[in-house]
Design a protein around this nucleic acid. Structure first.
Lengths: 226, 226
DNA sequence: TAGGGGACTCTAACAGCGTTAGACTCTGCC
DNA sequence: GGCAGAGTCTAACGCTGTTAGAGTCCCCTA
């Protein structure tokens, strides 16, 4: 177009984007696992070594994938009711992590801000919403910590359950019951029989209970924190 | 000693124990990583292939390692004040997970009850303590879920922080601040400057705040759950 | 005391992994 | 036309979990 200016590094940048999106796509298909460099390269119609021209190493790719997931999380608006905004964000974050089950194990990657713009934007919006809702800096830090801990931890447990459907649950719980010594773990047995094996049970429903409990506590403590 | 009876499979069983304890030891030394089969075998003075005579595959070893960690967690007594018992258990569990940072990423292993006796005993004791403290089955399930989610999630975040000492924290936070566009993430910047960089700050201290908030909420909801 | 059998360990190899060196090709600019 | 360099390739390195099959050692029985 113009006479000079940027020497058109377009293809590179496009290739990065495409590679990351393809990697996320493959990871989603695989479930918990992340694609290998050779596998990702093949899907992109390229050899594995070529990827190293666009990414210093695999960790950079993982960083980028995680940031794509964070980009899918609903940002809390600055001016909304903090409680409703936090509940919406929590649900949205939980959904994103369930949609991309491989992401939660990759949290330790995020180091360099270049590859984590969406993550930083997300954190900034959460803190801003809490501050606007009347939390002090200390209070916002407390709230952020307890909410994120709960969301991560719940999703981690949910994803590590060895079943997805309630039919599978019945199978697993049933055979577990059979293998268990009858009276060695009575409370555990009771919980499985009287709760997990009840029709209609789904662990996911538990998420809202804990979330509301925490939001209640935050509401109560909000003005007590310096 | 006696004429017949058990044909002395002692060496096998001892070898299993030793192998698992050695594996935990090596993982602790390495931090987040788990030893390779060859590495573990070498430390045991043996070739890698020999391990497969004692363990069907590596997953079985990981199961056993996780169960050893669960065995270190303080069991809540049946008759104690549920709130104090739950707080002690939470702290003990958090400590164990920090002591063995590799364990938290291995939660998805636990499937077969043979290799998870300590885990089952732990769960059973927690439920029993809550039941004795006046929680219904439903209530105990809620309490268990929110507490464990919080403990796992908090520890997961704590371990994924890219620093350990507060000196490292200053380095990381400082260079992060420099790389950040000055006014793109104002709330995030404020929190780093006014909180994380304050002398004496340590994220670990945050654990008790959220834990108390949750215990408060449980106390409040305890009799409302069917 | 000789011998059978099983528990245990070894060597060797397989396919896959992330990563690198170095040669090649292809495209845009002077 | 020729240079520069971005992008890709082939080939290889050392690592991983796992298996087949042969070899060794020790205990129990005859």
């Amino acid at each position: 177009m113009a006479t000079s200016g940027t020497p058109a590094p377009r293809r590179t940048s496009l290739s990065r984007e495409t590679a990351l999106r393809t990697a996320v796509e493959m990871a989603d298909e695989a479930g918990t696992e992340v694609p290998s460099m050779r596998g990702l390269a093949e899907r992109l119609g390229v050899e594995a070594a070529s990827l190293y021209h666009h990414f210093r190493n695999k960790d950079v790719i993982l960083d980028g994938m995680v940031d794509l997931v964070f980009g899918e999380i609903e940002l809390p608006p600055d001016d909304a009711d903090w409680r409703e905004a936090m509940r919406r964000r929590a649900v949205s974050m939980h959904d994103a992590l369930v949609r991309h089950p491989w992401a939660i194990g990759l949290m330790d990657s995020r180091t360099n801000p270049d590859q984590a713009k969406a993550t930083l934007r997300h954190h900034n919006a959460v803190i801003g919403c809490l501050r606007a809702g009347g939390f002090s800096i200390t209070g916002a830090a407390h709230a952020f910590s307890v909410l994120d801990s709960y969301i991560y931890g719940f999703t981690l447990q949910e994803l590590s359950l060895p079943f997805q459907s309630s039919a599978e649950l019945e199978d697993v719980a049933g055979s577990l019951l059979q293998e268990l010594p009858d009276d060695e773990f009575p409370h555990l047995t009771e919980m499985i029989v009287d709760r997990a094996l009840r029709p209609g049970y789904a662990y996911t429903d538990e998420f809202d209970v804990g979330l509301d409990l925490i939001l209640d506590g935050l509401h109560r403590h909000r003005e007590r924190w310096p």
